[in-house]
């Protein structure tokens, strides 16, 4: 199944007003990833969020670059999952 990986909008579910910056991307298009693998990092004022994959699959497309400003729900990657 093709899925979008987004900046987690459920981390602080009812406070969607935080903003961040992509500072690292650990995968490339075509990479196979497993659930728990680190995908990318977002720096927010308070912390650095290390986003891990929730699925097994293949990264089909990366939609952001380091330095991009992001907000909760913004699409970051497209993954083709193999676990559903």
């Amino acid at each position: 199944m093709i899925r979008e990986i987004v900046v987690p909008k459920d981390l602080w579910p009812r406070r969607g007003d935080w903003r961040g910056k992509i500072i690292n991307i650990y995968v490339s298009e075509g990479d196979k990833v497993s659930s728990g693998d680190q995908l990318f990092e977002i720096e927010i004022e308070k912390a650095v969020l290390v986003i891990e994959s929730e699925h097994n699959g293949v990264i089909k497309k990366i939609l952001v670059e380091p330095g991009d400003d992001v907000r909760p729900g913004d699409p970051v990657m497209i993954i083709e999952t193999s676990d559903d």
Binding site: P8, D10, L11, P13, R14, S35, G36, Q38, E41, E43, K46, A47, V48, L49, V50, I51, E52, S53, E54
Partner: peptide
């Protein structure tokens, strides 16, 4: 290096249960 805390994020089933209950 900047002093900021690194938080690993993978929203699992228990997380989503709490989220669903309080919402």
């Amino acid at each position: 290096m900047s002093g900021k805390i690194r938080i690993r994020v993978r929203l699992g089933d228990y997380y989503m249960t709490v989220s669903e209950v309080v919402r």
